[in-house]
Design a binder for these strands. Sequence first.
DNA 1: CGCGGTGTTGACGCCGCTCAAAGTATGTGG
DNA 2: CCACATACTTTGAGCGGCGTCAACACCGCG
Lengths: 212, 212
Amino acid sequence: MLGQFAASETHCHFRPHQFLAREDEQPDAIYRIDEGWACRYRVLPDGRRQITGLFLPGDICEPHWALGKRPSQPIVALTNVRATNLPSSPHGVLPAESQQACWKGLADMIERQTNWLVTLGRKTAIERLAHLLLELFERMRSSGLSYGQQCAMPLTQMEIADMTGLTPVHVNRTLQTMRQRGLVELQSKWLRIPDLAALRDAAALTSNEVLA
Amino acid sequence: MLGQFAASETHCHFRPHQFLAREDEQPDAIYRIDEGWACRYRVLPDGRRQITGLFLPGDICEPHWALGKRPSQPIVALTNVRATNLPSSPHGVLPAESQQACWKGLADMIERQTNWLVTLGRKTAIERLAHLLLELFERMRSSGLSYGQQCAMPLTQMEIADMTGLTPVHVNRTLQTMRQRGLVELQSKWLRIPDLAALRDAAALTSNEVLA
DNA sequence: CGCGGTGTTGACGCCGCTCAAAGTATGTGG
DNA sequence: CCACATACTTTGAGCGGCGTCAACACCGCG
């Protein structure tokens, strides 16, 4: 990394349910997640919640802040999180390397959001869960955090429900169906995918769809 | 279509159902819509379709192409469309002014996509339609294309269904309910909103949610 | 005048939601 | 190490919003 700038890198740490950013508050800096999972979400007036983005190790948290927006949604840690905030000069200008990382993160984020629009708009419960689990695995794998066919999966069924637009109860039942069909093994916060191709099939992806 | 020049603006024209861009094909340039509506979408293997973005007059079509991505989804004209493609040098570098417009468009697009994730994940049919119609009106208004409480609305019920993740039949029934409740007047491609506040309420937006 | 796209209506079925309760981890303090 | 609280997972019964299927009406257009 580079440490030769006025504002130097600083590491920070969050516990589960702790906020990395609150709505409409100017964040101190742009975070890169080094360890742990976080998400952003929105809550409707009557309490319904939808998670709109997941941040995994290596991800830049809200790269579009680099475009000068302030957070329109809160970001909260789902597990213990270690993060680094990208150094920036007083006027919010990032060093070239970080700038590049932001653009890359931005492009990936848009791609993933678009995929999720399709899933939330048109897919069944099994397809939604297959999409989610595949995406998690692929993202973990591309960060070197997978082990063979498995990886960590710290989300609760309630959090899965809030990502997939389902209820926790239905997530539970659907996961059981998928286990019975041999599509996934999921227990005690670990995910194993016996047959990647079968799960891709169950996710009803389009041929050129890349999740990582 | 048209032979494009390195650095000068060129205008082009599309008819309904004509493609502004196809999947995975490098587009000639980045378009700005001058008149008419277009959308991008994805079709699942079994034919289900989800529209993932709408482009209205003034919008830059796929600003994230400026990040160096090629289109992952087709873009098709919904009406007659006039567009201008932004001049760019051979290496894809945009003039500063266009660059600015792209970043602005990008930030707006992310914001809207996020809002739609919430709507598709968690909202009822009425709420979805209220969100859509409000967004359309606000976007048209901010471009000076509204007239009092009304604006053009060229979408078919089938297209509305593909945006909101519903079926055309249910869109039809839900619109009737909304008409009965005095939430909207919608006929022959024109939209009138008698009571903006009531429609906002029906859309179950969060207080700080801005749609334009 | 006929034809394809669109809007409308009805009957019926199912996927996923709601409500409720019991069972099982996880963690905390004594 | 146990007692207890809290969070999470699992299970059952019943229901409802939205989808499906199938007509029919309407309209612009060649």
